[in-house]
Design a protein around this nucleic acid. Structure first.
Ligand SMILES: [Zn+2]
Ligand SMILES: [Zn+2]
Ligand SMILES: [Zn+2]
Ligand SMILES: [Zn+2]
Ligand SMILES: [Zn+2]
Length: 656
DNA sequence: GTCAATGCCGCCCTCTGCTGGCGTGCG
DNA sequence: ACGCACGCCAGCAGAGGGCGGCATTGAC
């Protein structure tokens, strides 16, 4: 019922009709009409009847969008009649008796046979305002409860002409129809019909208003039946109309106005209805597959020349509709309109009822609505995922196919999504990539989403206070806690109760306590020497019981003196070569030796740990050389004693 | 018949944001 | 040595913008 759904305000409707009644319009329309071109096979007549008074019937409902009864002024109403176009074939086959019109259950359009015509039918003479001399005979049948015959006496009709193209099949049948005979015959028949004769029209069913017209001096007569569907019951479920425009009319003729689904041609295949026969016939073509217009470039077929032309334009790049505000151009006007809404006017006619969202296109609103409803119509056939739109499903399918359409132009890494590659390119190969700085701790994080994670992990408020591991302090933010705990880092929190010794690690205190107890639990099985710490035993074993052991030598390049410990070399260089003293560092042995060094872990003070893990090539000080396995020969008798090493030093040694 | 309006489907893009594996530094 | 924390990173989904193309319909 597409046509019936289109709202038509009564005012505008009236205006349109009145415009058509202007003198001269009819002549003009006739000249341009298919009637003349096609030989008057059929035409359309729309009739507006102005009733001085209409009878009351039915409930009070106004129907401005379906203007069967359109208030004009005072009591006057415009009755819009429907037109029925008869092809010559119809007339021929039906013998001007039964006129079978496509219909459906909901809205039957059936013309009663002439013999069984309505008992109340009347004959009216129509007079055109522009051409008062022309009169047309009208056979009109209206149920008495709607309009008694005496009322019809006061009825005045206006004729509106409309051109209608004649279908090809009608042209072919043209010779079968005697020129003008059918019209006259029918008219005569109607005229001869006694009013009292035979009307099996059932009360409460559809009523029809028949209008038959013999056109003027054109000489090309058409058979025209104009019918009006006046079924009251059918109109009762119409929506409440806007009464403001015609309160008086509504009061005077509530029933008819309330029930005004006036003029419709209904498709027997679908629900389409139209008030115009030409539209109706055009619509009927969508139900057959006839596509006579072929694209010579791709052989695609189209129903109309216009569609073909638009299509060919897509091949040729012809874009007749150019945007006035930018360089874009389009094949169709609709594309241009849409573009302008997106880019220039920002008009968004489709508003979401649940939020502020508005869109240029209806489909976008439809898609948006799914974010409210959660509807996911697009199901992946390989897993449980379902998406809200087709694109997401298509994108999702890449994880099943393994497709990675996007390749980094620099390193040729491949990605499933363009955005992922874009991030990759920016972060890996880009310059001056903006970083994200945490506002709370100044941590610099490459990705915004990772900053969000950072904020969540470190700076979110924790309802439960978190206690410091080392002191009674408590915090509601993890970052504050961590920062606080770091203040304990260099504290020598573990203090010996028997002396002044203090250290950072509990295990060091344990080792220290043995100096008080005299306990030496680690014994060398070869020489029966005992050590307080395990690591000291290990150093001893390497140095004195490992035949492959080669001690590292720290060489002063200035004087040639060598040392087994770097600290001793550094002390020496302070006197021997004070200018380069600060540059002092050490060098380890060759590649093989270095490997051993790494595995065994030379160990040292914290400040030298980094250097000691370096390779031979990483000579940082030109003034010294270290040879052999160990940068530090801590077990060397000549320069140190086991007990001279701090606990931390030894631990570091072992860590390495 | 043409044209504009409208609707619909499709395609592709961007921006956004979350997730979980990974590498690495640190305690 | 080892576990953990955390930034880095790719993967992947959500939401929306914009255009291409075609079909239908009402108006002229
Ligand atoms: Zn083509
Ligand atoms: Zn533009
Ligand atoms: Zn919304
Ligand atoms: Zn899937
Ligand atoms: Zn890359």
């Amino acid at each position: 019922m597409a046509a019936a759904e289109v709202p038509v305000l009564s005012e505008s409707f009236t205006q349109i009709k009145e415009q058509k009644l202007k003198p001269g319009d009819q002549e003009k329309e006739k000249e341009e009409s298919g009637v003349q071109r096609m030989g008057a096979q059929e035409c359309t007549v729309e009739v507006e009847a102005e009733f001085c008074q209409l009878l009351d019937a039915g409930p009070q409902k106004d129907q401005p969008e379906l203007p069967l009864w359109v208030p004009v002024d005072g009591d006057r109403q415009i009755l819009t009649l429907q037109t029925l176009h008869l092809t010559s074939q119809d007339v021929h086959l039906q013998g001007l008796g039964w006129l079978s019109v496509p219909h459906s259950e909901g809205f039957p359009v059936m013309m009663p046979q002439a013999e069984s015509f309505l008992p109340l039918s009347s004959v009216l003479w129509l007079e055109q305002e522009s051409q008062p001399s022309l009169q047309h005979c009208v056979a009109i049948s209206i149920p008495e409860e709607l309009c008694p015959p005496e009322e019809l006496e006061r009825t005045h009709f206006h004729l509106l002409w409309e051109s209608v193209p004649v279908a090809e099949e009608d042209q072919e049948l043209m010779p079968d129809l005697g020129e003008g005979t059918a019209l006259m015959k029918f008219e005569d028949k109607e005229k001869d019909q006694p009013l009292s004769e035979g009307g099996p029209d059932k009360e409460g069913e559809e009523r029809y208003l028949f209008v038959e017209v013999a056109p003027d001096n054109e000489g090309k007569d058409e058979i025209v039946l104009t019918i009006s569907h006046l079924n009251l019951e059918e109109q009762q479920d119409q929506p409440a109309p806007d009464q403001t425009s015609a309160p008086k009319a509504a009061a005077t003729k509530p029933p008819r106005k309330a029930k005004g689904k006036p003029r419709t041609f209904q498709c027997d295949v679908c629900l389409f209805t139209s008030s115009k026969f030409s539209t109706f016939t055009r619509h009927k073509k969508i139900h057959n597959d006839e596509r006579p217009h072929l694209c010579h470039l791709c052989l695609k077929a189209f129903r109309t020349v216009t569609l073909l032309r638009n299509h060919v334009n897509t091949h040729t790049g012809t874009r007749p509709y150019k945007c006035g505000d930018c360089d874009m151009a389009f094949v169709t006007s609709g594309e241009l309109v849409r573009h302008r809404r997106y880019k220039h006017t920002y008009e968004k006619p489709f508003k979401c009822s649940m939020c502020k969202y508005a869109s240029v296109e209806a489909s976008k609103l439809k898609r948006h609505i799914r974010s409210h409803t959660g509807e996911r119509p697009f199901q992946c056939y390989q897993c449980a995922y379902a998406s809200k739109d087709t694109y997401k499903l298509k994108r999702h399918m890449r994880i099943h196919s393994g497709e990675k359409p996007y390749e980094c132009p620099t390193c040729h890494a491949r990605f499933t999504q363009s955005g992922t590659m874009k991030i990759h390119v920016a972060q890996k190969h880009g310059e001056n990539v903006p970083k994200h700085v945490c506002p709370h701790c100044a941590t610099v994080i490459a990705r915004k989403s990772d900053l969000r994670v950072h904020l969540r992990n470190l700076h979110s408020h924790t309802p439960v206070e978190i206690k410091c591991r080392y002191c009674p302090a408590g915090f509601h933010e993890r970052y504050a806690l961590i920062q606080h705990q770091r203040t304990h880092k260099n504290e020598k929190r573990f203090k010996c109760k028997q002396c002044d010794y203090a250290c950072k690690q509990e295990r060091c205190l344990m080792a220290h306590m043995r100096t008080h107890t005299g306990e030496k639990p680690f014994a060398c099985l070869d020489c029966n020497k005992h050590f307080r710490q395990k690591q000291l035993l290990m150093v001893h074993l390497r140095k004195y019981h490992d035949p492959s052991f080669v001690p590292s030598v720290h060489l002063c390049l200035k004087c040639g003196k060598h040392f087994s410990r770097r600290s001793n070399l550094q002390r020496h260089r302070k006197k021997c070569d004070p200018e380069h003293e600060k540059l002092a560092t050490s060098i380890k042995g060759g590649a093989v030796q270095k490997k051993q060094t790494m595995e065994e872990g030379p160990g040292s003070d914290n400040d030298t740990a980094d250097q000691e893990s370096n390779t031979v090539k990483e000579v940082q000080c030109p003034g010294e050389l270290a040879l052999g396995h160990h940068s530090d020969d801590r077990a060397g008798k000549s320069e140190s004693q086991d007990e001279g090493l701090t606990c931390e030093m030894i631990l570091n040694m072992m860590d390495k």
